[in-house]
Amino acid sequence: MTSPVLTVENLAKRFPTGRSGVFVNAVNGVDLTIAPGETLGMVGESGSGKSTIGRAVLRLTEPTEGKIIFDGRDITKIPEGQMRPLRRDMQMVFQDPWSALNPRMRIGDLIAEPMKLHLGLSKSERENKTVDLANRVHLRPEFLRRHSSDLSGGQLQRVCIARAIATNPKLIVLDEPTSSLDLSVRAEILDLLNEIREQTHAAMLFISHDLGTVKLISDRIVVLYLGSVVESARTDELFSNPAHPYSQSLLSAHLPADPAAKLERHVLKGEIPSPINLPSGCTFRTRCPVAKDFCEHEVPKPHHIGSAEHQANCLRIPDGGNRIAQTETA
């Protein structure tokens, strides 16, 4: 078995709030691994810590605790100066392509920038590669001379993707790359990402709040709730057999674009609690339809469900009460 591109162990991130001793617990002990060429989907609602994890993996935010091992090397604590050459192999695509590109730079220069920083090519080699990259992301070469304000959201996201693949990275973190785009453009970008994945064999960490999108592109999915992994499984397994009550309700909350589809709704009560004061025990218990008294006192550990790759952190798995029954729907 090949060694993973990325291993994250017990990652935690607490942001200070300005009041002493009070912290926002954005990420609370997350473990992840991504194999070379694998696409890992990371799903969660706002406040689940998914973006913070994505940024911590690339050392764009400093982790409070835990370990990040990239390509066999522990990068948790190395200084930015040593980090910079490693960025050649780890790139990122952001959610909002309108704000992710320097508005004063030409598109061609933006695409060429990572090559300029890492590859040491001559100017003409770089220009040729820039045109190649534009072709690979299906962007007409005439746009290379323009500025970001002349392009649509979909075109801008293609520019961001071209930038991210310019140095042939081993890992690309994609933070909600399609959420701010219109439906038909979203489909094109997903198509493009799939092409890129097949061509480059880069591993991807695909962050999204939308299960439908993640399903289309991921080999494996982890579900986050309040900064902790509640379930991880291969994609088809998560969709056919979600074990954690939160995964079940998340799946049921998705509205298929088909009026004839029968909905199996488990509408959750209330909203995600504040990450400043995490609930004791299982953090999901305040909204969980199957929570019992003991969920308040015990922190759930991962349980294997069937295959080794399917794990869920629910205290009710041993007694079989983790399924939300139809009668318990709101």
Partner: peptide
């Protein structure tokens, strides 16, 4: 802002982030 973070993620040294 995101484009500055994106510049950092791409591997820009500090002087380039400042002046470019």
């Amino acid at each position: 802002s995101v484009f500055v973070e994106s510049a950092k993620a791409a591997g820009n040294p500090t002087w380039r982030i400042l002046f470019i």
